[in-house]
Design a protein around this nucleic acid. Structure first.
Length: 542
DNA sequence: CGCATAATAT
DNA sequence: AATATTATGC
């Protein structure tokens, strides 16, 4: 296994850039035709190919060049030595990943192969598709070895692991590889066993992407340049292109929404951006808008204009980002289960991390629910839909006004070291079915470290839970104070609530950095206009 | 490169 | 079954 890590370096070393390229494959098949074909195909994948028509010969090769191959592909039916035998030897002696192939997919046979440790079973005719991904077996295998040794180098593989989410990641399947014996399922039967390796755009990955884009400049950024800048070896230009497409779309939508929203925020020129003539960078626009987020702030100009200027001039810190895929399922259901003082902002916790990318996001259009969130009340849910929430629109946004008492209470509070409190809640609302279980998470961000609460529930008690959470929050403003902020359905039917203390507009400054670099925004509320803002904005509907 | 749309995933 | 995310072909 020591050797193996070296091997890894072997094929990826010069420029780890083109990782799978140079993968050293040994192909064993007694049929010379197939041998040729496979060789050709594999080479097309820019693998380094060695062929052998005899199992014994292959085995010798393997023994001689102990560290000379990364993976073996072998036919099952061979005159001199059964493919399974070969498989066995390899497994015993060098522990390389072996892919079996044959013309028939007879289950028992496939099973046998797999039971004997084959990492895959391909049916002839074999197509490029299937070969292109074989490198994953190599990585996978090494990953496990690395992990077993506690090897931290393994980190470098993490991202690769994210490939092909389902197939590679699902716990069950993964287990199959841990004990390569026990497997038997259909995954391997299907000739194209390793389905397409779909790239999963994790938060990290996306951040790299965004960084690259920004570095290049939004309008100058094309897939190739981005790819280069990102420096992620296994990513292809197409991957980036696709993501870029989505990204642009996203920004565009966002931009549109914000224009609309802006017009509701007392923005003066609802139509400003429609008469665009100057080329506009959606990032800028959105960032502006978002940062101002209907805070009603002076920044009218800042909001809707074409000025890239203002974005850079304003102290705006927000960066628009796009929702990316959650690595895994969401949130557990024990209150406080995700709480961590050492990680109050959920930077570490995967779940939270993935949620974070939503937090910053604006609503998504696909939304078409007739779902009506309920307004929380003392005794639970009221029957009133959340005021201001118009869910018939693709996007909706809601601003709730705190009760007068609360407002007064708050504003009279002298203990100014008033904190900035931002609460963002995310819940998955299967909108058509308000009864479905949803997960809901609330993150509390404050100057003081306030933990994160997570639970899962049905949409029926979402609001009650929210209320509870708020009430039990250190520094909460009281029962009915929970409601200042915005609530809108966000990407993926998630919804999102943001609350802040209007006492202190000045959010986290340098402090324990609240959220996630690229995903977060800082809201700025001019102190004096606050009251007005709160009042004016209350209950606006988008 | 970028769009439209096919293929997959959840 | 419907929707979201990626891959692909032009």
């Amino acid at each position: 296994m020591m050797e193996n890590s070296k091997t890894t370096a072997g094929f990826s070393s010069p420029r780890s850039d083109n990782f799978p390229a140079g993968l050293r494959v040994l192909v064993v098949d007694d049929d010379p035709t197939w041998l040729k074909i496979l060789e050709k195909m594999l080479k097309k994948c820019s693998y380094e190919v060695t062929t052998s028509g005899l199992a014994r010969e292959a085995l010798n090769l393997l023994r001689e060049r102990k560290d000379g191959f990364d993976i073996v592909i072998s036919d099952v039916n061979m005159p001199d030595m059964d493919g399974f035998k070969l498989l066995e030897h390899v497994g015993l002696e060098m522990d390389l990943p072996v892919i079996m192939m044959s013309v028939d997919g007879e289950t028992s046979r496939v099973m046998k192969g797999v039971q004997h440790g084959a990492c895959d079973y391909l049916l002839k005719p074999i197509r490029m598709k299937e070969l292109r991904n074989i490198w994953q077996h190599v990585l996978r295998k090494r990953m496990h070895e690395a992990r077993d040794i506690g090897n931290h180098e393994m980190d470098q593989f993490d991202e690769v692991w994210m490939l092909n989410g389902t197939e590679l990641l699902s716990g069950k399947k993964r287990k199959d590889f841990d004990n390569e014996k026990e497997t038997s399922d259909s995954r391997c039967v299907d000739s194209s066993s390793m389905k397409k390796a779909r790239v999963v755009w994790t938060v990290d990955l996306h951040q790299k992407f965004v960084k690259a884009v920004n570095q290049i400049g939004f309008d100058k950024a094309g897939p190739k340049k981005i790819l280069d800048l990102m420096g992620v070896p296994w990513l292809t230009r197409e991957n980036v292109a696709s993501h870029l497409q989505k990204y642009r779309l996203y920004l565009t939508r966002l931009q549109k929404e914000n224009e609309v929203k802006a017009s509701f925020c007392g923005m003066k020129h609802p139509n400003v951006s429609s008469k665009e003539n100057s080329p506009q960078n959606p990032v800028d626009v959105c960032t502006d808008v978002i940062n101002d987020k209907c805070s009603g702030v002076s920044g009218d100009e800042a909001i809707v204009q074409n000025g890239k200027a203002n974005i850079y001039e304003s102290k705006v810190k927000g960066v628009v980002s796009m929702p990316v895929t959650e690595p895994r399922s969401v949130v557990g259901d024990n209150i406080g289960s995700k709480t961590s003082l050492s990680d109050p902002f959920g930077l570490i916790n995967t779940d939270v991390k993935s949620l974070n990318c939503f937090t910053g996001e604006a609503p998504q259009p696909q939304y078409k629910q007739d779902f009506k969130p309920r307004f929380p009340s003392e005794n639970g849910l009221s029957n009133q839909p959340l005021p201001g929430m118009d869910c018939t629109q693709p996007t909706c946004s809601l601003n709730l006004v705190p009760s007068h008492e609360v407002r007064d209470r708050v504003s009279s509070k002298e203990n100014k070291p008033s904190f900035f409190k931002s609460i963002s809640g995310l819940g998955k609302l299967s909108a058509l079915e308000a009864i479905q279980p949803v997960s809901h998470q609330i993150n509390f961000h404050a100057l003081e470290q306030i933990p994160t609460t997570t639970w899962s529930m049905t949409s029926q008690n979402v609001d009650q839970n929210l209320v509870n959470a708020l009430q039990s929050t250190p520094g909460n403003l009281g029962e009915d104070a929970s409601i200042q902020g915005e609530c809108f359905p966000a990407y993926n039917g998630l919804w999102n609530i943001q609350q802040f203390d209007y006492n202190d507009p000045q959010p986290i400054s340098g402090g324990p950095t609240c959220l996630y670099d690229t995903l977060r925004f800082d809201y700025e509320y001019p102190n004096d206009s606050l009251e007005g803002v709160v009042l004016d904005q209350g209950l606006f509907i988008v």
